[in-house]
Amino acid sequence: MDTTGILDEALQRLHSSGPERLGRLTNHAPMAVEALATHGQARSVHHWLDAYSRKLEEFPLGVEPVTAANWRFALGDSRRAADWIGYFGREIAERPWRDVLAEWWPRLLPGMYGGSTHPVIRVGHAVRTLLTDDGTEPRLTELAHGLGYWAARYHPVADLDSLPGADSAAAALDTVPPITTREGNFPSRLGRVTGLPVWATAVTDPHEARRRLTELVRAATHRYATHGHGEETMLVHAATAPNAVLRSLPALPHALWVPSLRAAWTASAAVTAMYAPDTPVAYTPPGTHTPEEVFERALAHGDEHVIKLTDTALDVGDERALSAALRSIDLSEPLV
């Protein structure tokens, strides 16, 4: 928990920026600065933001206010990001944020695959801050930005065939068939995913769903250590998207935990199908690095996806997860 006030300063600084740049690339700064503050690096937040600022664009113009009467027509319209953020800002100002989240989570969950899963990841970071500090204005505004981005980029997947799976998350990820044509951007690749292995479909108990989701985050993080070279940036989301869902569960009614598991599995498995390499590399142990040292290396590297994967790796907290974080540092271009 950040008690310095720096995270709130950074979020206020960022809320004049849009959720994307160039009409398709996500603004990762709110997620990265939250991870830095959570892991004791608040003193580095503004310096990191100064380096990242060239990737920020001004907050977009609105089109027409989203209301309770017309929201269905605006869902998934990326031109309406400002309208959606304004809507959620008003909702969260008038009602407890947990109530807004619980109402909108099941509406947005089927479309968590839009924006390369970044919107749900941003919401997961925002919820983590609110679970530790239930209401500074910048943190509530950040949740509104995350939910608004999710609604604007809402994109469901087509009906998928159920393929033979496995009992464990790790084994199920190993059985994910790659798409046949692995070129193009995230939406075009996602459209080529026609079937995914069955995993955890029989789960009906909310607490078992949470256990399975924890297992999925661990398995996807571990897998990056040997498979991350398939696409060093996009494969990060196979772990960080389900972890965003896992982080949000404590703020959600238990009735939403099982469908959250299923949506998170679809996201992680689909990313695996879209970007996994043909063959893995040998596993390299992390050596004597402590979690704190690994996070400091991620900060020194600076890349936003490296910081976010390392944040998830520290949640997992074991040797193989630290190896995955170090692998992302080796594979990724540093932030200049």
Rank of each mutant, 00 (worst) to 15 (best):
M1H: 12
D2T: 15
I6N: 04
L7W: 06
D8N: 12
L11T: 03
E20V: 07
G23F: 11
T26W: 10
M31K: 08
L49A: 09
E57T: 04
E58D: 14
P60R: 10
V63G: 02
V63W: 05
E64L: 07
W84I: 06
A93C: 01
P96N: 08
R98Q: 09
R98H: 06
L101Y: 11
P106A: 00
L108T: 05
L109D: 00
M112S: 15
M112W: 08
P119N: 08
V127N: 01
T129W: 08
L131F: 02
L131S: 05
R139N: 13
L140I: 12
A144C: 04
H145C: 06
L147Q: 09
Y154N: 01
P156S: 06
D167T: 06
D174F: 07
R182S: 15
V193W: 12
W199G: 03
A200G: 05
T204L: 01
T204M: 02
V217W: 07
T221F: 05
T226L: 12
H227P: 00
G228C: 08
E232W: 09
E232K: 10
L235M: 06
P242L: 07
V245E: 00
L246R: 15
L256P: 00
W257V: 02
A276Q: 15
T279F: 12
T284Y: 07
P285S: 09
H289F: 08
I307R: 04
I307W: 04
A313S: 15
R320V: 13
L322G: 10
A324G: 12
S332M: 14
P334H: 11
V336Y: 14
